[in-house]
Design a protein around this nucleic acid. Structure first.
Lengths: 139, 139
DNA sequence: CTAAAACCTAGAGTGTTCTCTAGGTCAAGC
DNA sequence: GCTTGACCTAGAGAACACTCTAGGTTTTAG
């Protein structure tokens, strides 16, 4: 590993971030990095640890449902340097609200699902059919 | 509204469930109903209140991330009548676990995002740049 | 030096879940 | 009866986020 000091290959970054090598190139095409990725003399990508850190945040944003388009907007804000922190904050706060809403929605759905599970469990344990769906013979 | 007693048109069901008319026809093609939807003499769909109830559960399942394929499997189990309650229970329990895991993951992401929001808020309020990303000029 | 593994580009293909189009038919109100 | 809005089918199209292919080049290990 005679890489430029601190430099990481695409494969190493894939390992560290859980993204695929294809995914990393895709991210780059989509403008999701904070700056151009350096290249070796032969044209291979050389990443810095800061890129990995950024990708780890990207994973969190993505996993929490942020679209590529929104992530790109955020990356653009960061790329264009200091001065737009209010916009970055607004974007993140908006996403935070979205995530909180999604958690609340999931919690509501969970209640319904858990209710169904409870009914089925009682049935399976007791051999009762009350309260279960069946192709109701109602016509 | 001289519909067959209790009968609902596709538009009415769309209103009640939040699904689009197109979506309802799509659901039917995908085999997500518990039984064939009746038709009027002229070929138009007539839904029963039970269908609406089922669709509302479907919404919960879908909103909580269940795929169409899994919903179809569940619908098939229900359609094929009593006797497979254990399988239905297993399917629902599996989904419940998935939803719980997703909530946990979102909560983790939320913590990270909220941390970022906090840093940005402090910055915007205080005019400090510590901890913010910028296109680091590091080479 | 050589072989194998990792990497490169551009672009095509995939899976999922709708969403809409075209070209009609049906039903309800006046 | 006629208009208007709702509905019908089959199938195309769209949006999203990858994922893979083909055909080649670079790097690393031995």
């Amino acid at each position: 590993m005679t890489r430029h000091a601190e430099g990481l290959s695409i494969g190493q970054v894939a390992d560290k971030t859980g993204l695929s090598v294809h995914g990393l190139r895709f991210f780059e095409r989509e403008g999701l990095f904070l700056r151009p990725i350096r290249r070796s003399a032969g044209g291979q990508r050389i990443y810095d640890p800061a890129d990995v850190e950024w990708l780890l945040l990207c994973n969190r944003l993505r996993d929490s449902g942020m679209s590529i388009a929104t992530m790109r907007r955020f990356a653009e804000l960061v790329r264009s340097g200091p001065g737009n922190e209010r916009e970055r904050l607004a974007l993140l706060e908006e996403h935070e609200r979205t995530v909180r809403a999604k958690i609340a929605e999931l919690a509501e759905s969970l209640e319904v699902i858990h209710g169904k599970v409870t009914v089925y469990r009682r049935h399976v344990d007791n051999d009762t059919a009350a309260g279960l769906w069946s192709p109701t013979p109602d016509r």
